[in-house]
Each structure stands twice: as structure tokens, then as C-alpha cells.
Computed example of a mutant assay.
Amino acid sequence: MSPSATSAPNRSSAPAAAEPAASPLRTETPSECHPDLDQYAVPDLVDAFVDDQFHALNAVKAARHRIAAAVQAAVPRIAAGGRLVYVGAGTSGRLGVLDSVELYPTFSWPKDRAIGLLAGGHQAMFEAVEGAEDSLEQGRVDLEAAKVDARDVVILLAASGATPYVLGALEAARAAGALTIGIANNPAAPVTLGAEVAITLNTGSEVISGSTRLKAGTAQKIALNTLSSAIMVRLNKVYRNLMVDLQPTNAKLLRRAVSLTMRATGAGEDAAREALAACNYQVKVAIVSILKQVDVVAAQARLDAAHGSVRAALEGLNP
């Protein structure tokens, strides 16, 4: 499949490696706001950390148009069978893995279509793997091993924007024709300059100098939540503002499935449970079955014809 027409134009090929910085990265620059942090009383210490997080939200808000561009570019590829592939190291990589694994219980998104590549592998999710992020070649190898192609969307995360592992993956993703979305916390970073869609979350210096698990990480988490959730809404995983394509994998989610069905249809609990039991707790199917007063087979057929859109299935329209 050729890249979507909504994708940003290709830029020059990804940089082979990060160039030495002429000046310290903003994320590494010591904060001038709290030079005596170690002497703060506990309430003041907590206030300093909490207050600083507002900068994370402001950084994401400033990048909202780039996030929207990423969503628009990603949806056609994902709808055509592509995958979301997250790549990162350290905190950034763990945030990518977290976003990937939460898509299945939240949206019934297939596990094999949301992949997290973390420098250092599985072990690095739980403890630091020293030096793993420094290998440009390993980034290439891991990305190529995932068999990425032109339908896939590769989200490359690096607070510095210059992590060699991520840049290696970027180079391989571009060569494979995948859509590349670069997310960094420093302006004009190699990962954003090399990606088709650049998202800069300019969070500046940290309360604890260089600790980008703080507001840089918060900004990345907000951006990922926004990006993947917006994609899922566009893929008909949400009806109104209800999470109607969840996987009820535990007692809490079973209760949530019942509650969502009741809220969407106005049905009582017994009727909601009966409809859900008949369709193996597929909330979408239960909603259409109740509101259109058809059996679950007919409800599923309506949803299939509407490409999974509950609204279109109820209105008898093509989405």
C-alpha cells in the first residue's frame, strides 16, 4: 500500500547519528527556579514538583496541531491493516510500551497490531540496561525484525530527540516506507527533523536537572494518550463518548460493560446483562441489539456493514 495522501511530505533521510550539541539540551539545562530544592520543607517540595507538571500540559497544548496531523496521517494506514509500533529507550520507551499494551483492554485492539520496541528488550521494562540506548544498529535491527511495512505507523520517542537506538529505528522505518511520527522534548531534535510528522513537546528544564521522567515524561504520556485515543475514536472504537469496544477481561470490566450498555441504551441491568451474555459481552453488539430490537446475529451484521460504527449501524448509514 502506498502512503496516505494525508501524510506529511517526506523529508530528507533520517540522520545516521546525533551530532554533538552546540549547547546543552533544554531538558538537561538546570532549572533556575529551584536552586535550593534540597533545603525545601516537604510541603514546599511537593508543591514544586506538582506545579512544574503544568508546564507539561502547556507543552502538549502547544503541539496539538502537530498531534492532529499525526492522527490524520495515521488513520488511513491503520484502517488498511497497519500496526502501531512504538520505539524508545528508558522512560520514553516504557511509556510507549505502556500505551501499546493498554489498547487491547480499552479498545479490543489486537495485541499483534500494537508493538512496543524498547532499547534493551523486555528486561529494560523493569530495570535499566546500561548502554542499550546507545546502539544505532540495534535500533535498526529491532525495527527490521518487526517486519514493518508501508501500512505501519512508527512512533519514535526520545526526550532528548537524539537517542541513537531511536534514530536507528527511524532510519529503518523510513526505508520500509512506514509513516514515522517523531516525539521529542527539545526543539529541532534529530528524531523530529527526520520523521514525517514532528511533535515537539518543549518542556524545558526539569526541577531535578536532567530527570526527564518528570515533566518531559508527563508530556509524552499525555501526547500518547491523545494520539492513540484519537486514532481509536476515528476507527469506530467509541460510541458517543463511551468506551464500547472494551475487552471485559476481569470483574471490574464486566461491570463496566454492563454499565456502558445501560447508559447507551437506557435498558435496565437485567436486559443489559441478557444482551451481553448472548453476544459474549461485546458491548457494541449488545447496544445495537437492544436499540434496534434484533438478535445478536443481526446486530453484528449491521455493525459489519457499518465498519464497526455503532452510530452508523443504528442509523442504517455507511460511516
Score class of each variant (00 low, 15 high):
Thr180Asn: 04
Val310Ser: 03
Ser92His: 00
Pro319Trp: 13
Leu37Phe: 05
Asp52Gln: 14
Leu167Gln: 07
Val129Trp: 04
Pro30Gly: 07
Ala119Lys: 01
Ser229Cys: 06
Lys147Pro: 02
Gly139Ala: 08
Asp44Tyr: 13
His34Gly: 04
Leu242Arg: 12
Met232Arg: 02
Arg240Tyr: 07
Arg302Met: 11
Leu170Arg: 06
His307Ala: 15
Ile78Asp: 05
Ala162Arg: 15
Ala216Ile: 06
Arg174Gly: 04
Asn236Gly: 08
Ala275Gln: 12
Ala114Met: 06
Ala16Ile: 13
Leu118Tyr: 00
Leu98His: 05
Ile183Val: 13
Ser229Glu: 09
Ala56Gln: 02
Ala59Glu: 04
Glu130Cys: 05
Glu133Gln: 01
Leu235Asp: 04
Ile287Met: 09
Val258Pro: 00
Leu170Gln: 11
Leu37Cys: 05
Val42Tyr: 15
Ile199Gly: 01
Leu95Lys: 00
Ser209Thr: 15
Arg11Val: 11
Thr29Arg: 04
Gln220Val: 02
Ser211Cys: 05
Ala89Pro: 01
Phe49Thr: 03
Val285Ile: 14
Leu98Lys: 02
Ala114Ser: 14
Arg213Thr: 00
Arg255Gln: 13
Glu196Gln: 15
Ala306Ser: 12
Thr200Ser: 10
Pro164Trp: 09
Ile78Cys: 03
Asp38Gly: 06
Ala17Arg: 15
Asn236Ser: 09
Cys279Met: 14
Asn241Tyr: 13
Ala264His: 12
Ser228Asp: 03
Arg234Thr: 02
Gly177Phe: 03
Cys279Asn: 11
